[in-house]
């Protein structure tokens, strides 16, 4: 077998090209999502453990480091979601009356709008019950 130029790819293969770095950013931010889900499970567990455990979780969440990490994760999740919303029209091109909808609008219609709508409803429900 002939050696192929540029292979094998090393562990830092993605550093060499801007496009590869963007890809890695997109994929790596999914990790933040996973971390947050584990964190949600911890909340759920503390709920089962009773009032004191839940109170401790609240105290923990108020800590400046926790607030900072929440911010980081939120940013990463926003970035990750936006990259996929932008890619959706490529995966599922949108047609209206046999005319292709421009990718920009298709991303808004299929991704951003539903996301904003669902977020609004959830926020409204949460804030209403809190207030």
């Amino acid at each position: 077998m002939k050696q192929r130029y540029g292979t094998p790819l090393g562990p830092t293969w993605f550093l060499g090209r801007a496009a590869y770095r963007r890809f890695m950013a997109r994929e790596a931010t999914a990790f933040a999502m996973a971390v947050f889900l584990v964190y949600l499970l911890l909340w759920l567990r503390s709920l089962g453990q009773g009032y004191t455990a839940y109170g401790q979780m609240i105290e923990l969440a108020k800590h400046p480091i926790s607030v900072f990490v929440h911010g980081l994760i939120f940013g990463a999740v926003l970035y990750h979601s936006a990259t996929w919303f932008n890619l959706t029209p490529k995966i599922m091109p949108m047609y209206v009356a046999e005319e292709k909808v421009p990718d920009f609008w298709a991303a808004i219609i299929m991704g951003y709008l539903p996301c904003v709508a669902v977020t609004t409803v959830v926020l409204w429900a949460v804030l209403r019950s809190a207030g």
Binding site: R4, G6, T7, P8, L9, W13, F14, A19, Y20, F23
Partner: peptide, 10 residues
């Protein structure tokens, strides 16, 4: 030549 998967998986 742009695809890292091509690079990784012959």
């Amino acid at each position: 030549a742009a695809c890292p998967v091509v690079g990784a998986e012959e």
